[in-house]
Nucleic acid binder design. Sequence first.
DNA 1: ACTTGACCTTCCTATGACTGGAAGCATAAG
DNA 2: CTTATGCTTCCAGTCATAGGAAGGTCAAGT
Lengths: 139, 139
Amino acid sequence: MNIGDAAQLSGLPAKTIRYYEDIGLIEPLRSANGYRSFRESDLHKLTFLGRARSLGFTIDDCRTLLTLYRDRSRASADVKHVAQDHLACIDRKIVELTEMRRTLSHLVEACAGDDRPDCPILADLAAVAPGQSCVRQSN
Amino acid sequence: MNIGDAAQLSGLPAKTIRYYEDIGLIEPLRSANGYRSFRESDLHKLTFLGRARSLGFTIDDCRTLLTLYRDRSRASADVKHVAQDHLACIDRKIVELTEMRRTLSHLVEACAGDDRPDCPILADLAAVAPGQSCVRQSN
DNA sequence: ACTTGACCTTCCTATGACTGGAAGCATAAG
DNA sequence: CTTATGCTTCCAGTCATAGGAAGGTCAAGT
């Protein structure tokens, strides 16, 4: 199976598949003409990687997860640990984004959005002491 | 005022301030010895940038916002538009992360996390058809 | 005058996870 | 024989910095 088919079936761009080979995540064989030749096991790994990446795991996490996947004597605790760390990371990002969202939506609501120059958004950006918000809300 | 003081007062690393000059966000003067010399207006811009960045605006957004800030004849609608676009971007990210979080937390909960190799997390990563989740939940 | 240490300068490299594109070989169809 | 598609490698770019090397400047202390 050539890279085009592997891309089609795994849902990953060919570029990405080559990159994954570059960094040692997969090791497809080579045909006589130099083309990469993907086995079922390679395809399997690629879909595994695609799924893991879509859940936000880093490439490094993926490497670990692939290794655990191949290791029949793994402890599920090791897998769980990786997933829990990632989950905590996601939670931190959500908190950060939610905080941004809260502040920004207040500012957007307060802005008239007309032809006049007065703008509470710019006022906030400009007037704030480092690290301090001047947006005062009743809640 | 040298870059160290500007960094202290703006809360930005000196490295970042030099970078901002590189990409044309600020234009501090130079002293006879070649050191950057920051005016009040430069410092003002730096805190503006720090605040905008902390709200997640891209550097490109910051450039636009700085221009609008300087422009006394701006329309607040233009500022609001930039902020609303960014808000929509944040919302998309939150949705994406929340979806990841949901799936991942189900998997983590389902994993025993003990010495045995059986692991629903790996099972999900391995068994899924591209783009499809096999985690079935009652909700 | 000399040294130490803190501060400043520029320049180059690295990050993460790709993406785009150029130059060139392989293969299949018409 | 040409054309078109697919494959190869290699190099550069993305975003917003961070790290570090090599060297100039300045104020204080001996």
